[in-house]
Write a protein that binds this DNA or RNA. Structure first.
Lengths: 233, 233
DNA sequence: CGCTGTGTTGAATGCCGTCAACGTCGGTGG
DNA sequence: CCACCGACGTTGACGGCATTCAACACAGCG
C-alpha cells in the first residue's frame, strides 16, 4: 500500500486541530481501502473492530429491524468519520454501511483509538463533535416525523441531500449519487409509491426533474417552502 | 450550601470510574439545587452555561418546534447526566428540561468541563457514553416512528417508562411520576385522543390501570407483546 | 430476449387525526 | 363550604392522507 500523504486529509475537520506531526502519526495507523458500489463496508450488529473516514464517494447508512423493514438514517459525505462505535463504547455497529458509489475509505483498528486519545486528542474531540451533531440531527428527525406530513418530510430530505451532496448542473442542483424512490422512502418513513407520486407532482410544478436513480432539484427555493411552511396557496 | 458528600454519588455511573479523590474534586466544583415540580431547569436555545446531574426526581426533556408543537424525546432518571451541551461543543441547549416532580440537581459551570477532562477523564468518558447511548435510543425511535403503528409505539413508550421509572405496587408496575395523555402523545408523535382511546381499550383488557396523571401497568408481558409483535389474534 | 429492478398510476381501504361534546377532578376564591 | 374554573380525560362521528393492492411500463443486463 502506498504511504498516505498528509495533504490528502489536512483540510478535513477530523484533522483540523492536529499538528502536522500528529496528522502523520494518525495516518500511519490507517490503511486505505476501496469499496465498489453496493459493497458493504460493515454490517449491523457485527463486532466493531475498526472505525472509518470517507475519503471519496458516498456511503448509505442502513438500519434494519428484525421484521425486515429498513430505514436510512443518513448518508455519509466525503471527509466524514463513520462507524465510530468505539467512541461510544459500543462493541457492535448499530447499522450497516453500504457504498452508494465507488468509495475510498480510511480504516483504523479500534486498538488505535485509545492511543489517539492521548497522542492526538484533537482527533477524538472531533469524533465526539461528530457524534454530538448526529444526535442533534437524529433528534430533529424525530421531531419531523412526529409533527410533519409526508410531503414536508420528503421535501426536507431532498433539501438536506442537495445541501450535503448537491452538484450544480445547468438544470439545477443534482444529487450526485444514485438514489431510488425506495431509498427516499426509507429516509422519510413512507413508501416508494408515495414518493413517486409526490416527485411526479413536483415535476409537474417544475420543482424537480427526476429519472431513474437520479434527482435534480430545479427550484430549490420552492422545495424549501414545501419543507418549512405549508404549500403555497 | 452544605458540602456534598462523596457517598451520595459514588455509586452513580458518572463517578464509577473515578478515584475517591477525583470524586471529591468533581463534587467540589458542583453546587446542588432544588427545583420544584414544573420548574424549568434550562430552556431550549438558551445559552448553555452549565451541565447537570439529576440526584433525585424526574426531568422531562421537551423540544418545541417554531410552530408550537412539541415533542418529548425522553425523561431523565435519577443518576443521569443531562444538559451536557458542552460535551457536544454546542453553545445552546437543544431542548428544554422541566422538573416532572420536585427534583434535586447537581450543577457544574461549563468552565469546569475542560478541567475535568484532564483531572478526571473517567467523568468525561461517561458523559460521552451517555451521549452515545442517547444517539442509539434516538435512532431506535426514528426506526420505530418510521415502521410501527401508533399502538405499538405507545406500547413501547410505556414499556420504556416502566423499565426506567417503574415502581412496583400490588396492582402492577406504576410509572412513578405524574404523566398525562398529552405527555404520552408527545413522546410518540400522536394525539392525546388516540392515547386515551388505546389506554381505555387496554384497561378493558386488563393490561393497564390508569387514572388522572397516573399509569399502572398490570400486565407487562401483554404490553411487551403489543410493542414487539403484532397484537395476539 | 426474458428477467429483475425500478418507476408510474389508479382504486380501494383503513388508520388515525380532527372536530365536537361532555364528564370529572382538584384547586381557588368568595 | 360551596361555586366556579381550568386542566385533564373520554367517547363518538367524520374525513383525509397515505398505505395497500394491483396492473402496467421501461430500462439494463446476462
Amino acid at each position: 500500500m502506498p504511504p498516505l500523504d498528509r495533504s490528502l486529509v489536512a483540510t478535513l475537520p477530523a484533522f483540523a486541530r492536529l499538528s502536522g506531526e500528529q496528522v502523520d502519526r494518525v495516518l500511519s495507523a490507517a490503511r486505505s481501502s476501496r469499496f465498489p458500489k453496493d459493497a458493504e463496508i460493515f454490517a449491523q450488529d457485527e463486532e466493531a473492530r475498526s472505525f472509518f473516514l470517507l475519503l471519496s464517494g458516498h456511503v448509505r447508512v442502513v438500519r434494519a429491524s428484525p421484521d425486515g423493514t429498513q430505514v436510512i438514517p443518513r448518508y455519509i459525505n466525503e471527509g466524514e468519520l463513520f462507524g465510530i462505535a468505539v467512541a461510544m463504547d459500543r462493541s457492535t455497529y448499530p447499522a450497516s454501511a453500504v457504498a452508494a458509489v465507488d468509495c475510498v475509505v480510511l480504516i483504523w483498528p479500534n486498538a488505535a483509538w485509545p492511543e489517539f486519545q492521548s497522542q492526538a486528542p484533537g482527533f477524538g474531540a472531533e469524533a465526539f463533535r461528530t457524534i454530538g451533531s448526529r444526535l442533534q440531527e437524529t433528534q430533529a428527525q424525530v421531531m419531523e416525523m412526529a409533527t410533519q406530513q409526508v410531503e414536508q418530510r420528503i421535501a426536507h430530505a431532498l433539501v438536506r441531500l442537495v445541501n450535503q451532496s448537491g452538484r450544480k448542473t445547468d438544470e439545477g442542483i443534482e444529487i450526485d449519487f444514485p438514489i431510488t424512490r425506495q431509498d427516499i422512502a426509507e429516509m422519510t418513513g413512507t413508501t416508494l409509491h408515495t414518493v413517486s407520486r409526490l416527485l411526479s407532482a413536483w415535476e409537474g410544478e417544475g420543482i424537480v426533474r427526476s429519472s431513474r436513480r437520479n434527482v435534480v432539484v430545479t427550484n430549490p427555493h420552492a422545495l424549501v417552502l414545501l419543507a418549512e411552511n405549508r404549500r403555497r396557496k
